[in-house]
Each structure stands twice: as C-alpha cells, then as structure tokens.
Design a protein around this nucleic acid. Sequence first.
DNA 1: AATCATTTTGCCCGTTGGTACAATAGGTAG
DNA 2: CTACCTATTGTACCAACGGGCAAAATGATT
Lengths: 199, 199
Amino acid sequence: MYTLLISSSISLQDHLAAALGSFIEVLPSLWDLPTATRFRQGDLVWVDADNQDPDLIKRLCKGDFGSARVIVLSSTPNDAAAVDWLGLGAAGYLHAFSTPETLRQTTAVVESGGLWVGVGLMQQLCARFGQIAKPQHDLMAQLTEREREVVQHLKMGKSNKLIAKEMDISERTVKAHLTAIFAKFDVSDRIQLLLKLAA
Amino acid sequence: MYTLLISSSISLQDHLAAALGSFIEVLPSLWDLPTATRFRQGDLVWVDADNQDPDLIKRLCKGDFGSARVIVLSSTPNDAAAVDWLGLGAAGYLHAFSTPETLRQTTAVVESGGLWVGVGLMQQLCARFGQIAKPQHDLMAQLTEREREVVQHLKMGKSNKLIAKEMDISERTVKAHLTAIFAKFDVSDRIQLLLKLAA
DNA sequence: AATCATTTTGCCCGTTGGTACAATAGGTAG
DNA sequence: CTACCTATTGTACCAACGGGCAAAATGATT
C-alpha cells in the first residue's frame, strides 16, 4: 500500500511517521505534485490543510489526481470544515496531531472503505437524522412498503434513474410507485410531494 | 464486553462468529428476548433486519431494552433504511455479509462511541448538512432582484410556465433566471435548490 | 463614449418526468 | 377457485425542464 503525506510541517511529518511507520512518502507541497499524477485505488494521501492550497486539496478530494483516499488534517479542526471536505469526497478529517492510536484507527477504517469523522460532528449529523427520519402523518401509513422506500429516496432529491438503480428495479417500476404515491397524497408531481412533506 | 447477535440465519451467525470471534452470543429471534432484559452500557447487539420484527428492532434501537449499542445488518442495505435506523438510535448499519475486516472496524468504531454508516450516505449527509449549516443569506444576497422573485415562486412549487405568466415574462426568461440561480447556489436543478432552501 | 451587469427573448436540443394502456406474477382473503 | 392487492416491466407519448448559442435593450459606472 502506498501512503503519501503532503505537508511542509516537519513536526507533522515526524508525528505521522512515528504513528504509521517511516515507510510514508512525504511531499512538502501539493504544487510539487506532477499534474500527470494518477493515484491508484487503495492509495492513501494525508494532506495538511494548514499549509496547502485549498483549491488543490479540493481537486485532490474530487479525484482529479486519481482514486486515492484522501484524509485531511488540520491543527484547528471544526465541524464546518469537516462537512466541506467530506462532502467533496475526503475519506477522513481529523486533528493533525491526533494520538498515534487514532491515526492508526483512521488508517484502518479508511482503508476498509469507511469514513473517519469526529464524534462531535457525528452527533450533530445524528440530530439531523432525526429530522430527516421523522415519522410522517397518516398519509405515509397508507403507502405500501415499496412506496415508502421510494418516498425516502425522493426526499433526498434523487432522480428516478438513481432510485431505480439503488432499489435494483427498473425505472418504469419507480414511475409506477410514484404514480401510486402521487395519487395517495393527492399531488401531481414530486415537487408538490416534497412541499407537502416539508410542511 | 458482551456481544450479542440476533438472527435466525445460520450463515450470518457463522459469518459474524468467524469475523468477531466465537465468544458471541446468539439469539435466533428478538421474541426470545426476555422483556425484562436490560443491556448495559457498552454491550453490543447486532441485529439482522432481514428476519426480525421491525417494531422490536425499533424498540431495541430506542433503548427499550437498555443502553446497548445496536448495529443493524441487512442483506439489501439502502440509504433510506440507514436513515431510519440511525435516526432511531442505531449505532451502525451495514451489509450483513460485509467483509470480516469491515465488521471488525465497525466494532471498533462503535465501541469507541462512533457510528458506522456507508460512505455514500455519509457523503450525502455531509453535503446536506453543509447546506444546512451554511447561512443562505449570503447566497440569496448574491441573487439579482428578478432572480430572488423567481426563487419565491419556485419555493411555492410553481412551474416555469406559471412563473412566466405571473411575472409577465416569457418562459425562456424564467429559465435564464433559473440557470443563473442554479449556478449561484451550486445546484443542478430546482429539486436540489428546494432541498437546500428547505433545510 | 465605453464598459459592464441585468433583463429580456427566440430557436433548438437532449434529458427527465408523468402517464396511458397494457401484461405477468406472487400473495392473501373469501 | 376467485377476486383483490402488490410488485414488476414494457412501449410509447407528451409535457416539463435545463441549457447552448445568440441577440437586443436598459441602466449604471467609469
């Protein structure tokens, strides 16, 4: 496995090397990264948000340099930044000088396809879960199981095509469920349905 | 640490035991759980959503049986269900036959007080949360007068045609405004915009 | 006078969404 | 066995949506 740290901070370089092993490669700046660089699936890139160009980190997260898993480090971590990076595709966000134990655990989680975020952010997201997942009215009770599933997807703003893919059914079937849902909710389209649910 | 798996599926029982160790206790059905059962803080309960009563799982997640951390397993995982279970208090939601590695990671994360969710859902939540957390004031301020008007109509779920009629302009102009609005809000269509505004 | 942001519109294109008119199949209740 | 509900899918049609390319007019700013 290839692991790269991008940071100009000597102390951070030492810290990470101590925690993860000295086989880590280090690059002082993202600008030094050849534009032709193509990370492979499974590569791990730690990047120091304190002293790197945000735009380049952004591109890195979005996969412009290949399919590496990106972990963003910050010496002043905050939830807002976390959601930004994770939303862009980062696989982790944590304090640059986290304990070696935490760093190792992050590595393990990210390598196995997970995301690493702080507990505080998780709790906030959980609070939002509650809102998103709040039980609806009696109208929802009138829906069949599959129809309810479709509604969940709808609420996330997904297209018919995507819903079909995620439910592993044809787009036509999604439409069939939608037609049924619209009738039961007495609305004409998904927009009105969303407005009704949001109210 | 006490770990319990609730599933009638032999293959799942074997799979989990192989991944986490054979010290796991197994219960075929949630119905077999004595109503007086009180899990303790730190207890880990894996429950198979495929063959258990949803209502009982629900109560389990909500803590009716004590303060165990609940991890929901499904052979057909989807984001909608994830939102439901996590919203109810589950600490994790993942594919029943995830790799042993992933199962172990889940254990580690959940035990240390975290949540385990799929990457796709996590990113969606972050994206959504980012939108929520960000004051739309700044975004709305970037709109022109007419664009703001259009947004008002949009929030009421009106069609382009209707908006055009009410603003006494052509439908093409409405589209032009919309295109500008979408760009400024960094969304692709009216649905995403509504979700952003509604949040 | 020249530049710029804003507003307006037309034509055309591809994609998405909703539905009419079907059919097949599994399960349940009578 | 027979309805009935649910889930699934197909073809096809049309309306709605989003945007590319273009143009014109206005008002403000420099």
